[in-house]
Structures are given as structure tokens and as C-alpha cells.
Design a protein around this nucleic acid. Structure first.
Lengths: 342, 342
DNA sequence: TTGTAGGCGTTATCAG
DNA sequence: CTGATAACGCCTACAA
């Protein structure tokens, strides 16, 4: 069935030990012997049994990723790119990736337990942190390596390794951009309050208003579900209740698309009548009609750096910096109401 | 570090064997004993070591999925939904999912070898079959369970378990729909020729023309890269070379979006000037401007049935039908040039 | 430079 | 009903 070290040993006339060490590149093995063994291994098509190796070494060369499928909605294009960054980097470093999609809740923790205590993975990658997120304390209590995409909410300490994007700065830039264009009544569509980064995005909005000495009006702030539909509903609500609103900052691109649809449905024009911005800079943002002004975050790179950080932690060589906040960048497009680019 | 059966054995006073069987639900264990053992296991927070179990039982309870990242482009929304169907169903059946993203080529086969011969997975799920695809013969030669999303090309036999969608019928319906609306010059944007299903989609187009006794004009047929950009280029080429073309059938939604952009860029109106259709019915199709007429395929269900089929094969109870072609369905929207729905 | 032996945690076989 | 024993394939002291 499977080719094992024993098969190679038999065929080559050496012991299993020698075969194992020859293949592992130990120096205390005769070069002739090694060549011979390698040849036999190739002929037989040997591939190490990773289970046995993992059991023996207590290392699985596998990373775990549980994708949070918020509500019924599925991980969107954001997780696509995230998965690509994580997957590519893991593969390049000879790690496999165990993936599960779970709705936050009881089942979700079961998935974590299964991966961690089942010794299936050497480390975990968490995404989309929430307020009072049970996952980080759990993993810490288990002493199991993990890294997180995103910090805790502003009012909670973040005593774990993470890579996050500076969303406060990003939303501030978007809001300030609208203010600079003359808008004074600016709506905000936040992610659900239980999401950790919601607080940072709210701060960014507040920052910009404060700096411009504009009043903060709580009624201009609504929450959406991160999906297009959430943006649509919030957009309709804002526009119908407060006709003076002339710009809306949405906290991700999907919701921004929904806001644009709401604007158009009310017979208004995106950009000239009501300006809109998003967050993420998904590919679709550039192609939207009109193209969407948004805050770009380097999703692929986030995944990449998370994996590098995690592997470092696993092998006992953590990088110097284990709490990284990457800059975000405002990308101005037509949905701002500008004529053309920048 | 880790709680093992031995720990429970020590604490409960029974042997490892008995503990193992009590937890596994064997009938030949005293009910009192079982209760006691289960209690101790819970207190200790026992979680079986899945590596050891896998090594012993030669089963890993893990399925492998390698996402083909065509060219540089990343798996799009299609794979999102596919991954959800596969992941959900695997989880419900207590299987884990090992995921890798690979560009077709040498590395890709290495990934397959690693998963299969490394005994990491009990079975593999393949997606996006190509002409002369090396993966199926390889897995067959290894006697390793696998299922495939998609058949071989029409001129190759498909002697493996698969779930596919009837894309010939789907494209035929889309083309016939345009013909019924009076179009006579209909462009076709195919996937790359090396993709297996390209042949079926071409057949569907040919079917519809033949049935309507319209001439088949090869120059109306172009290939795209399955991404938006490919559709855009093909759309521009068709429109500039053959102004008489009044409808374009694109073979996936992403390319259809590109075609729509090309039409608009030439100052024409999608629907009234040039009708467009896609394939997949991604969420974005409904929200496009104008909404996209497309052929819906049940992506989630495909993933689900593939996993069920694969698990059946693994445990030796394959379903009766292991070659399934699911129907596709034309969804008519405004990009057809219709006024409103159907 | 090479081989022997033991064990990682689990399950299956067989004896008591 | 319960327990001792072996084995899955690999790695690594230690011995030769």
C-alpha cells in the first residue's frame, strides 16, 4: 500500500535508521550510502507518512484557519484574498493548511478544540476578532501558538501577536476627504458593534469631525451586517430620515455597494448628490458604477505576514515585532463626486 | 501537555484498553465503568490525538481540496461558494478539510502527492478539470479515493466519479433566448480551450444556432481567461471587428461583467444595444448594472454532493449514482434587453 | 559509519 | 467485562 522506510531498508540492505538519516540529510552517513538510498527511495516513490512523523515529533507542519462565516453570509472576496495570502505563504514554508468555516458560537469553539487539542495543527490563525472574543483567552490558556488578524477593541488590551490595518486612520482619511470636499452632513455605516475593529473605525470618523470642528451627530451613525444588504438598508434609512446627508462613509466595500444601490434607488446620483466611500478595496470597487472611493488594505500581505509570524513563533524564533499595524491608504475614485481620478 | 488515554486510565483505575473502548462506545463495557470513565475524561478535558488515531487506523478523517488558481487570478466568488458547500458538509460529517491553492503545473502535482502519499487525507476533491488532466490518472493509479467537480472534455471518457452541471444545456438556453429575441449575430466568449468544460459550452452554443438554422461563424467565438479582464478584451475585440453583433454569450459571470464594461466603454447600452449573458449566477450578477442574465448553477449543492459522494466512497458505501449532471437554469434579467423580469 | 531499541497515542486481537 | 500486548511509521538516544 504505502512505501515506508522499511521498504527502502529492505531493498537497499541498510537499516531503517540509516535510511531515515540518509533521507533527513544527516552528516554521519556515508555519501555512497546516501546516494544509494536516495535512489532506491526515488524508484519506490517514497513519501514520508506525515502522520507518523507528526506523532513522533509532535509537529504536524499544519496551520489551522477557521473562517468566520458571519450570520448566514459567506466569507466574501476579502477572505478569498486572505486565504490566498495565507495559503501561498504556508505552502512556500512547507506547511499545510487546515480550513474550516464556522459561524461564531458553540460549534466554532468545538472546531478550535478539535484542531488544537486534537494536535492537528501547530498553530492557529484567527480572523475577525470580536468583543470579548473567547478564542484568544482559550488559545492562551492552552499555550497554543496563534496569531490574529486584527486587534481587540480599543478599550480592551491586545496581549497577543497580531497584524492589523490602521482602520482608524483609514476612516479618518475618508471622512476628512469628504469634509474637504465641502460635506458637512456625513453618515457612517459601521460594522456590527460586536466586531472588534468597529471601535477603531468609529474613532476615525470622530477624529475627522473633531478636527474639522463639525458636530458629531449620533443619529448619522448606523450599523450594518457587513454584507451588501446591510449597507443597502442603512443607506435607505439615512437618506430617508436625514435628507441633508450628502456623503456616507461605509466601513467595508460590500456595504458601500449597498449604499450606492440605495442612493440610486431614491433617484439620486452617487457622487454628485451623495458621495460614498468604502473600505477594503476589493477588485469590484474599481469596477463599480461609479468606481468606489475606498480605503485599501493589503489583504494578501496581512495573510502573508501572519503566517510568517506564526511559523516564527512555532519554531521558537518569533520576529522582533509581533504586533503590527499596517498603514491603510485612501483610494479616491468617482463615488467621491470628484470628476475623474484624484 | 496533552491528555492521553493513559492519563484517564491512571486516574480512573482502568486500563488504557478499557478506557479506549468505553469512549468509543463499545457495548462490552460495564455501564458504570463507562460513566465513570467518561466523567474523568471530561474533567481532564480529553481530546483524542487525531494523529495517533490516524496512524493506527489509517484514516485521517480529512479531505483534501486543492484550489486551482488559474494564472495569477485568485479563486473568485465561485470557489467561495464551492468551499462553503464542501466545508460545511465535511464538518457535518466530522471530516476536516485540508486546503491548498495551487497554480496548475509541477508544484500542483507535488501538492497532490504530498496530500495523498503523505497519507494526510482520506480522499481528494478536484475542481476545474482540464484537457489531458494528469490528476485523475494519477489518483487512479494510486487507488486513492477522489471525486471531481466537472467531467472530462466531450471527446475524452470520464471514468471517475463526478458532479457536474449541464453547461451545454445552459449555454444553449442562453443562446436560444437571444435568438428568440431576434438576435442573429451572437458572439461567444469561451473559457480557455484547455479547460474541460469549454467543449460543452461550445456545443451548447452550436446546438442553439443549428436548431435555429443560423450560420455558425467561428470568428464570433473568442476565448477569455475567466476573469473580468478576459471578458473585457474579448468584448472589445468582438464589438470593434463585428459591429453587427448584437448579443454576446459569456461563459462565466466574471467575463460577462467585462463584456458589459466593454459595451459601455464603446458608448453602447447593455441590453438594448448589445445583450449579454453570463454563467454561474454569482451574487454580483443580480446587482450588476444592468442586472445580468445568466445561467445559474447550484454551486453549494455541487460541493455538498461531492463530499457526500467522496465520503461514501471512502467508507466503502458509494452512492448508486457516481456520475451526476445537475441541471442548470437560465435566469433572465435586464442585460438581455428585456424590459424587466421574464 | 551503522544498527538496536524504545516510544509518540491510539486501536485491534486475543486471552483471562 | 477487562487487560496485556502488539502494531501503525517515524525519529532519536545510545550502543556497536
Amino acid at each position: 500500500m504505502q512505501i515506508t522506510l522499511r521498504d527502502i531498508a529492505r531493498k537497499s540492505g541498510f537499516s531503517v535508521t540509516t535510511v531515515s538519516r540518509a533521507l533527513a540529510g544527516y552528516q554521519d552517513v556515508n555519501e555512497q550510502t546516501r546516494q544509494h538510498i536516495i535512489e532506491v527511495a526515488n524508484i519506490l516513490g517514497y513519501q514520508p507518512n506525515l502522520l507518523a512523523r507528526g506523532l513522533r515529533s509532535q509537529r504536524t507542519q499544519t496551520l489551522g484557519l477557521i473562517i468566520p462565516t458571519y450570520d448566514a453570509g459567506f466569507p466574501n472576496e476579502f477572505f478569498n484574498q486572505f486565504l490566498l495570502g495565507v495559503g501561498d505563504t504556508a505552502w512556500r514554508n512547507h506547511y499545510d493548511l487546515l480550513v474550516s468555516a464556522q459561524v461564531p458560537g458553540e460549534e466554532e469553539m468545538a472546531a478550535y478544540r478539535r484542531m488544537v487539542k486534537g494536535l492537528r495543527v501547530d498553530g492557529m490563525i484567527l480572523a475577525r476578532t470580536r468583543k470579548n472574543d473567547p478564542r484568544m483567552p482559550y488559545l492562551q490558556s492552552q499555550g497554543h501558538p496563534f496569531v490574529v488578524n486584527g486587534r481587540n477593541a480599543p478599550d480592551e488590551p491586545s496581549d497577543f501577536p497580531y497584524v492589523d490595518v490602521d482602520s482608524r486612520m483609514g476612516i479618518r482619511a475618508a471622512t476628512a476627504h469628504f469634509i474637504a470636499l465641502g460635506h458637512e452632513h456625513i453618515g457612517l455605516v459601521l460594522p456590527p458593534p460586536e466586531i472588534a475593529y468597529t471601535g477603531y473605525r468609529l474613532q476615525g470618523y470622530q477624529d475627522a469631525l473633531r478636527e474639522a470642528r463639525l458636530p458629531l451627530r449620533d443619529e448619522y451613525i448606523l450599523y450594518g451586517d457587513l454584507q451588501r444588504s446591510g449597507g443597502y438598508q442603512a443607506g435607505l434609512a439615512l437618506l430617508s430620515r436625514y435628507p441633508q446627508i450628502s456623503a456616507i462613509v461605509a466601513c467595508n466595500d460590500l456595504m458601500a455597494f449597498g449604499v450606492m444601490a440605495a442612493i440610486q434607488e431614491r433617484g439620486l446620483e452617487v457622487g454628485s448628490d451623495v458621495a460614498v466611500s468604502g473600505f477594503d478595496d476589493l477588485p469590484a470597487a474599481e469596477y463599480a458604477m461609479p468606481p468606489l472611493t475606498t480605503v485599501r488594505q493589503p489583504i494578501y500581505e496581512i495573510g502573508q505576514r501572519l503566517v510568517e509570524m506564526l511559523i516564527g513563533i512555532i519554531v521558537g524564533k518569533p520576529p522582533e515585532e509581533t504586533q503590527i499595524v499596517l498603514p491603510s491608504r485612501l483610494i479616491v475614485r468617482a463615488s467621491s463626486g470628484f470628476n475623474g481620478r484624484r
